[in-house]
């Protein structure tokens, strides 16, 4: 094929019908509070790792709800627990991350 120097980017559209929520559903069974996030961003704002790594509990939860892999983000968490202190919904975000790591560990995904 002749290379014209153009390429087509893959669609960035999130297709919820195709989103695989297995991981998210597993997490919700272990941590029902995961559903309570209202995306206020307090966790990300206070995160010690965020400004260097892009770590954000809010983004982790959103990505899971869209069926995305979050192992890269998880590896940036230092489990300091500051996010738990600021969450207005009282979600134990530190424990939530820990549970998520356990799921990844068990599945041999990490």
């Amino acid at each position: 094929m002749i290379d014209f120097g153009f390429k087509i980017n893959p669609s960035s559209t999130l297709d919820l019908d195709k989103a695989d929520l297995t991981l998210y559903n597993k997490l919700v069974r272990m941590e029902p509070e995961a559903r309570m996030c209202m995306a206020c961003g307090s966790c990300s704002a206070t995160c010690m790792s965020a400004e260097y790594s892009g770590m954000s509990v809010r983004k982790v939860l959103l990505a899971l709800q869209r069926g995305k892999d979050v192992s890269m983000m998880l590896s940036n968490c230092m489990l300091c627990g500051k996010c738990t202190m600021v969450c207005p919904r009282g979600i134990n975000t530190r424990h939530l991350i820990l549970s998520l790591c356990r799921i990844y560990d068990k599945e041999g995904l990490k």
Partner: peptide, 12 residues
């Protein structure tokens, strides 16, 4: 748009 993800979204 899923404005929290900053991406277009569709669902059946």
């Amino acid at each position: 748009e899923d404005t929290l993800s900053g991406k277009p979204l569709k669902v059946g």
